[in-house]
Amino acid sequence: MWNLLEYAAWALSALFGVLMVADLIRIDITYDNELLISSREGEIEATAERHEI
C-alpha cells in the first residue's frame, strides 16, 4: 500500500505544480505586467486608516 501512496504523492505533487505554473503563465499572458505589479503599500494604508489624533 505504501508503494502506491508514494506514487500517488508524486502524481499529486506534479498536479499541484502544473496547476500553479499553468495558471501563472496564463495570467502573465492575459494581463499587462504593469497592472499585475501595480499594488502600492501606501495607497492601501491611506484608504484604510488615518494615523491622526
Binding site: 508514494e6 504523492a9 499529486l12 505533487s13 499541484f16 505544480g17 500553479m20
Partner: peptide, 16 residues
C-alpha cells in the same frame, strides 16, 4: 519508506 514524495507533496499542496 521513501520520504521524498511526501515531503514534496506537503510543500506543493500548501503552496497551491
Amino acid at each position: 519508506l521513501h520520504q521524498q514524495p511526501f515531503i514534496v507533496l506537503a510543500i506543493m499542496f500548501l503552496a497551491w
